[in-house]
Design a protein around this nucleic acid. Structure first.
Lengths: 352, 352
DNA sequence: GCGTATGGTTGCATCGTTGCAAGCTAGTTG
DNA sequence: CAACTAGCTTGCAACGATGCAACCATACGC
């Protein structure tokens, strides 16, 4: 049923090879032949069979983007950007979700099933260590947004410790005394939480503050529900915090919900800062102060690095540290200082 | 470099075909041979080349899910569900975004490029009419969440008119006098907005209300920014509304932002209802009353219908109308009536 | 006029897999 | 004991495209 090169060749009265030459813009084809073949192509409505082409060429033209969860806005926004970027270079992106499950991560990485379907991998790892990754993965790979120091792979990341530190310092600068953090996690849930915890810790220590274990709350995930629950626990302390650094925006939005629900004012009673700069935070009430990584740059660099590897360039592994920005909004600065709410425009915009 | 059937065959001392038989669990293979081959398979770490297999079998094992925008939570959540469902049946899902651009829709549908890569299509059309679709698309296709009446394709939808009507009636039942609607769109932006407009209209007329053109606001997209801007326009009217039906949750969240920013209370001064039941609305302040379609069912049915078509079953086109629910939360009911905030649990749960 | 460069076209093999149908062996049946 | 069956294994062709290298003209230089 589908039209093949052979069909076109027969119709145009030339060889299969010549039709292929026309389709692929091979230079040495006479104008007449080209016209004749083109006519046949159009009349029959020929479309190349990409599967066959891929088999012959030994590549698939597809890359995989592996993220924890698409329903988390940060990753949806990132996926959007990566797909656009890859598309510009003629690549199709397949998205895979791990749902934070290490077993699922292993499964996706494992070249057993569809892993053979793509030429390369952009991976936002949660649980899997670098050593294991190196051992298992055979296709080129770029790691996203996690590590501080690079290893055997290309990394596109930002300095999580510095960013977390910057966020905490912002709360200190506001004069807050009891600064909590929400989102700590055990090591096997990924390194992101570790680094953010460390940045939080560093900032407090540098400011000569004590670090209270009670004020550092672990959460199973980074969802709104986790933030809400964690905040409830903090408020039940004998001495609740007056500021909270949440390890992502969803946690922060959940925390704010709990605060408002219990009659606390944000930021007057408790200031809240998030991480990721998702769109929600620009329209929530109060709008959300947050650390904003340069997502566009992350996506572009990740695709660029990967495609270079796919071309076979054998450079040493690179690490790109992307910029981040502190975007101050109502959840720490309050209404009074903010006239352009809802626009997402930052009021103060320091840091790097 | 990769291990092929031939490599395994050589090592096991059998024919290529026999190895293939083992890999595919062909019944007539002697236990000894099977063991011998399996050993070679394991030792060499054979992984089937899916591209070659697909070429031979004449299918790709991939389906495409075409949505307007992944960064819109509703579609991210839906994509999540569709991918999971398709995965269960051994299919890989490729997500494509149209960004509301009809040209882009055409391009994706067009079998020129990667359209040949997948066996079928789940399509949430915005601008493209059914006639055009029928003409262009050759692979099996299931349409999502749009039309009220089916045509030549399988549809999985819910009754947009009825749902919009139900939402509007809720506002009427609350005793609101001036009920606005945000999200109307010209026809070429898709039919969803038309049907929701109609439901809104029907409800007002049935209640003996007049329909004021000023209270129906058009928006270019369905984003938070559009909702915020539209709400601002409504508030600038000589007689602002006391209730707003937004055609999706993002619009509603944007509208609420504007209301609160201007000092209105929600729902006391203005009640707001949305559409889609995205997670944001469960944690916003106030939490968002919304029409909740059964997304899980939509995803499951869409995949099921598509796979049946792929199996070659030649049934008449079907239309499945999925249930929807009105989830009443604070943005219309207020705090007083709501004790289980943040849980997403509906207070009142009528309708179908 | 002969060797050679150049442009234009082609046949053949191949990518890794599976469909088809035949071949082989051993066991069953009349 | 011949004929057949069932179980097991295999070679060949094909899916639809492209890499390779040969091939045929024509035109050019000497």
């Amino acid at each position: 049923m589908p039209v093949t090169l052979r069909d076109v060749a027969r119709r145009a009265g030339v060889s299969v090879r010549t039709v292929s030459n026309v389709v692929n813009d091979f230079p040495y084809v006479s104008p007449e032949t080209r016209a004749k073949v083109q006519k046949a192509l159009d009349e029959l409505g020929y479309r190349p069979n990409l599967v066959a082409r891929n088999l012959r060429r030994g590549r698939t033209g597809m890359i995989a983007l592996v993220v924890p969860e698409l329903a988390v806005p940060y990753f949806a926004e990132l996926a959007d950007l990566v797909m656009a970027e890859a598309g510009e270079h003629g690549y199709t992106t397949i998205i895979d979700q791990t749902h934070g499950d290490i077993e699922r991560e292993r499964q996706i990485i494992h070249p057993s099933t569809r892993a053979m379907l793509f030429d390369g991998l952009i991976f936002s790892p949660l649980g899997m260590g670098e050593a294991e990754l190196r051992q298992r993965v055979k296709t080129p790979i770029v790691l996203l947004g996690e590590r501080i120091a690079g290893g055997g792979f290309d990394y596109v990341a930002f300095d999580n410790v510095a960013a977390a530190r910057r966020a905490t310092e912002h709360l200190i600068a506001l004069g807050r005394r009891r600064i909590a953090a929400i989102g700590a996690q055990p090591w096997d849930h990924g390194e992101t939480a570790q680094y953010r915890t460390q940045g939080y810790h560093d900032a407090l220590v540098s400011a000569g503050r004590s670090v209270e274990p009670d004020l550092l709350v672990r959460t199973p995930h980074f969802h709104r529900a986790d933030g809400a629950a964690a905040m409830a626990r903090l408020l039940d302390l004998p001495e609740p915090p007056d500021a909270v650094f949440c390890f992502n925006d969803l946690l922060a939005l959940g925390a704010i919900r709990t605060l408002l629900e219990r009659g606390y004012r944000v930021p007057e009673d408790v200031a809240v800062i998030g991480f990721d700069d998702i769109e929600d935070g620009r329209y929530s009430t109060p709008t959300l102060t947050t650390v904003s990584p340069d997502k566009q740059r992350i996506a572009a660099a990740a695709v660029e690095y990967l495609l270079e590897r796919l071309k076979g360039e054998d450079k040493a592994p690179r690490t790109l540290m992307v910029d981040f920005t502190l975007v101050v909004r109502e959840s720490t600065a309050g209404r009074s200082r903010n006239d352009n709410v809802g626009t997402g425009a930052p009021l103060l915009e320091p840091t790097r």
